[in-house]
Design a protein around this nucleic acid. Sequence first.
DNA 1: CCCCTGACTTTGCTTTGCCTAAGTCAGCTC
DNA 2: GAGCTGACTTAGGCAAAGCAAAGTCAGGGG
Lengths: 161, 161
Amino acid sequence: MTDLLANRDAWLMTNCSIARTLDVVGNRSTLLLLREASLGTRRFDDFAARVGISEPVAAARLKQLVADGLLERRPYQEPGKRTRDEYVLTEKGAQLVPVLVALRQWGDTWAADPAGPSVWLAHHDCGAEVHAVLRCAAGHDVDPDGLDVRPGPGLLLADTE
Amino acid sequence: MTDLLANRDAWLMTNCSIARTLDVVGNRSTLLLLREASLGTRRFDDFAARVGISEPVAAARLKQLVADGLLERRPYQEPGKRTRDEYVLTEKGAQLVPVLVALRQWGDTWAADPAGPSVWLAHHDCGAEVHAVLRCAAGHDVDPDGLDVRPGPGLLLADTE
DNA sequence: CCCCTGACTTTGCTTTGCCTAAGTCAGCTC
DNA sequence: GAGCTGACTTAGGCAAAGCAAAGTCAGGGG
């Protein structure tokens, strides 16, 4: 086994967790639907209107999100109305919130309106602003360029003859 | 001004930082190219091969990433070879690393190969594993469901007549 | 000065995503 | 039991994104 790190050409990206995640949420409307779900939207029409997509697209994406286990469909009933279904985040879906926070944070910094961002996120318990940060298991804050890539157990190597 | 938080219907999402970020990096191949750049890939052919996209697509996306200021094109020369251009992350691009880490982390948890992930990220200084976490300005760790949404200065309201 | 190589570009085609407009359907309200 | 409403589905079409295969181009090596 030669120098693994220098031989990145041989690494096959067929088991990349980023790519696998993007297989599930890798398009704009899916992520925006999850944004809405995380902000508390639950009803079909609201999803379509707030994301700004047509009903056919909303129906297809929501169905896929339920199939993938990121949203759960639950019956509910407003007083004096018939029973309907609402869409709520599952644990699996809620764990994508750091992705949404990181995306929002980048947009706030690099692509915001001159007036500033439309919303910001406060810690429910203390009211302070929330950010996505990188931290190592030893408790250190980590810079984007302070990362080392290490081969993991699922690494596949190309057949280098 | 009535209850802003209850009146989310009136919020116009035309100034959403998540949507603005997705306008720049909202497709699979762009994010995978940034993954490669963050892992140290610099040459055109390597980008195309490692991301698994065709050359025309790689050329178009890389050009757009340079135009958007996430990658910088720089001349370099390997000994005994002609001068070429390489693509390296700018500060603007590097600040998307938390997004990539959060995506990777979700994939490790919810979509990994039974054998485990192909790579993991270590803190360069201490070797411990790195994660994306949510933290408030007061220093508390924040759960995905511990977030409050607050209207910001750039919030646009719909004309509710 | 001719060839090789890395870095693209061009062409032609398929797939995916999204749109509008119109239709369906189920259960309350009246 | 007729109509309304929310939640979709169906049909038809356009545009963006992707692929494969082949062509272009510039500069250093031989």
